[in-house]
Design a protein around this nucleic acid. Structure first.
Lengths: 158, 158
DNA sequence: CTCATTGCCGAACTGTGTACGGCGATCTTA
DNA sequence: TAAGATCGCCGTACACAGTTCGGCAATGAG
């Protein structure tokens, strides 16, 4: 076992560059992908296959313009609870709301933090009403995003 | 011009189902993709190509396990400003920090909201120190995520 | 020193992406 | 109402890319 920077995932620098390329354009051919990292097509294919097998690459997906889907307004909602909300049932109840994109349990003042995308601020109002129907929700505090500088994938570079 | 639910993007139900399938697995073949929505291979190919041309599908990418990249700790940082931070230079300065995944200008109490991924909470400390070097940053308030219920793509369904 | 393991490569095969032409329906316009 | 244009859908064919296979060299273990 050799020394590792944080934990042993068996990732070397070529793997990180492969991930960076795939994050940029997962539709690129294995030939161009291999050329970008200085490997043969077969080797690049091997490495990407292993990254998927190990669960490091979870899936290949598409990034969509939220406004085109009627989700042009981004908000974050802090939730205070009057009961324990750490069980899976809470996650299921939040996942049932299609406008909720992320749901986290947090440390500090509040209890929950959810990321919400709606068409309008009126629709955010509707989501808040449905949030109050989730067991344990005592109060909410909404943060509406006026402008987004950037949203990008996890950086593979240290 | 027919009536639309929110704004005219020329999206019909088949387009939304195609997007949902691609979000689930963008590596699927056009044959299986077409079968999932009840179309021929050529038609599915046509629709996806147009969705990309119109910018509705921005890119195909991969979802990566953040922990494997040394980004196992997720935090949100609220920033209060003592100067105007709405210019692009602020966005550039934040984008220079690889741990910052999102940066937004928000309404309400604070001024900025950034999403940060680090290996440890000590590393979050380091990011905060560098955040204070960004012009305009007066104070910060960190929200550390203890557990994530889910993170998922934008829902194409109404 | 020998063996096992690992990562890399070239080449062949198979499947898929991609482009093309034609068909029918819908909407426009005269 | 009739004629034309536009749009979406489809089947087909070809070239390209994904995928697999066997072999080679380097590394590490026994």
């Amino acid at each position: 076992m050799r020394l590792s920077q944080q934990m042993e995932y068996g990732m070397d620098d070529i793997d990180r560059r492969l991930i960076a390329e795939l994050q940029r354009d997962a539709s690129a051919s294995y030939a161009t992908l291999a050329a970008a990292v200085g490997l043969s097509t077969a080797s690049a294919h091997d490495r990407v296959r292993k990254l998927k097998e190990r669960g490091i690459i979870r899936r290949t997906t598409v990034e969509v313009d939220p406004a085109a889907l009627g989700r042009g307004v981004l908000s974050y909602v802090l939730i205070d609870a009057n009961a324990w909300m750490g069980d899976a049932s809470t996650g299921d109840a939040l996942a049932a709301l299609p406008e909720v994109e992320e749901a986290h349990i947090i440390a500090g003042a509040g209890t929950l933090l959810v990321k919400v995308r709606t068409a309008t601020t009126q629709d955010l109002q509707g989501v808040l009403r449905r949030l109050y129907e989730v067991p344990g929700v005592a109060s909410t505090q909404s943060i509406v995003v006026l402008e987004t500088f950037f949203e990008r994938p996890v950086s593979p570079t240290a």
